[in-house]
C-alpha cells in the first residue's frame, strides 16, 4: 500500500488520480465519482445485491465475454479478408500459420456461444427477481435490445468462416426473412445483397459483425449500465436515502 500511496503522491500519480485520501466514506465516494472506470457503477448497492443468489453475476459475465470477444475478434481481423475467394483459406491459415491463431479462434467461438447463454440467463434471472418493475422498466427494454443485438452478432459471425456449416446455417436463417408479408423479398435482398448467399452477403455480414453491431451494442450497453446505476440509487433514495 505504501508504494501505491507514494505513486499517487508523485507528479504522474496526481495527474492520473484526482482522488482525495480515502479516509471517510465521503472521500471514498468522491474517489468513486472521479474515476472514469468506476463511474458506470453506483457508489453504493444494497447489501443483498452482493450475494451470488441475487444475480449469479450473469450481467458482469456477459460484459466480460463481450470484452474477450472484442479482443480476440480484433486479433482475427488482422488475418481475414471477407471475400469468398479468401475467407476459407484465411481461416485455414489462421489455424495453421498464425501465432495462437487456432487458440484465439477457439476462444472467440466459445465466448460467443457462452455470451448468448449468459445474456439469456441474465434476462431470466432479472425476470425471476422482479427487477424489471418500476423504476427499471426501460432498462429491461434496453436489455431486450441487447439480447437481440447479441443474437445478430453471433449470427453474422457464423457466416464468416465460409464453410459448409456457415453457408447453410445462414441460408436457413435468412430464408425466414423472405416470409415477412409485403416487404419480405426486399428485406431478404437487403440482407443478402442478392437472391442467394454470396460475396455481397459475406461483405455485408462482415461489416455488420465487426463494425455496426459491436458499436451499436457498446452504445446501448453504456446506456444500460448508466440506467442500472441511476435506477439502483433511485431505489435506495426511495427507501430512505443512500446515505447511512
Amino acid at each position: 500500500m505504501k508504494v501505491m500511496d507514494r505513486m499517487r503522491q508523485s507528479t504522474i500519480g496526481r495527474s492520473m488520480f484526482r482522488v482525495p485520501d480515502r479516509v471517510t466514506e465521503r472521500d471514498r465516494a468522491a474517489g468513486h465519482w472521479a474515476n472514469f472506470l468506476l463511474h458506470l457503477y453506483p457508489v453504493k448497492v444494497r447489501r443483498k445485491e452482493l450475494t451470488f443468489g441475487y444475480s449469479a453475476f450473469l450481467g458482469v459475465s456477459s460484459l466480460v465475454l463481450f470484452v474477450s470477444l472484442v479482443v480476440s475478434g480484433v486479433y482475427l481481423m488482422f488475418f481475414y479478408v471477407p471475400s469468398p475467394g479468401n475467407a476459407y483459406g484465411d481461416i485455414q491459415n489462421i489455424q495453421t500459420s498464425v501465432a495462437f491463431g487456432q487458440y484465439v479462434r477457439n476462444v472467440h467461438r466459445w465466448a460467443a456461444h457462452l455470451m448468448v447463454i449468459a445474456v439469456a440467463a441474465h434476462m431470466a434471472k432479472v425476470f425471476y427477481r422482479g427487477a424489471y418493475k418500476p423504476p427499471k422498466e426501460f432498462n429491461w427494454v434496453l436489455g431486450v435490445i441487447l439480447l437481440v443485438l447479441t443474437l445478430l452478432l453471433s449470427f453474422t459471425g457464423y457466416l464468416l468462416p465460409w464453410d459448409q456449416l456457415a453457408y447453410w446455417a445462414v441460408t436457413v436463417g435468412t430464408s425466414m426473412a423472405g416470409y415477412v408479408p409485403l416487404i419480405g423479398d426486399s428485406v431478404k435482398q437487403i440482407l443478402l445483397g442478392g437472391p442467394t448467399v454470396g460475396s455481397t452477403t459475406l461483405l455485408r455480414f462482415y461489416v455488420l459483425h465487426v463494425a455496426v453491431l459491436p458499436l451499436l451494442l457498446t452504445g446501448v450497453l453504456a446506456f444500460h449500465l448508466w440506467r442500472w446505476r441511476k435506477d439502483s440509487m433511485l431505489q435506495m433514495d426511495q427507501q430512505g436515502g443512500s446515505d447511512v
Binding site: 471514498r28 474517489g31 468513486h32 453504493k44 448497492v45 444494497r46 447489501r47 452482493l50 435506495m236 427507501q239
Partner: peptide
C-alpha cells in the same frame, strides 16, 4: 447490517 442496507461498491461489489 441488514439486507437492504447500502454498502460501498468499492470494495464489496467490485
Amino acid at each position: 447490517l441488514k439486507e437492504e442496507d447500502p454498502v460501498m461498491v468499492w470494495p464489496h461489489l467490485l
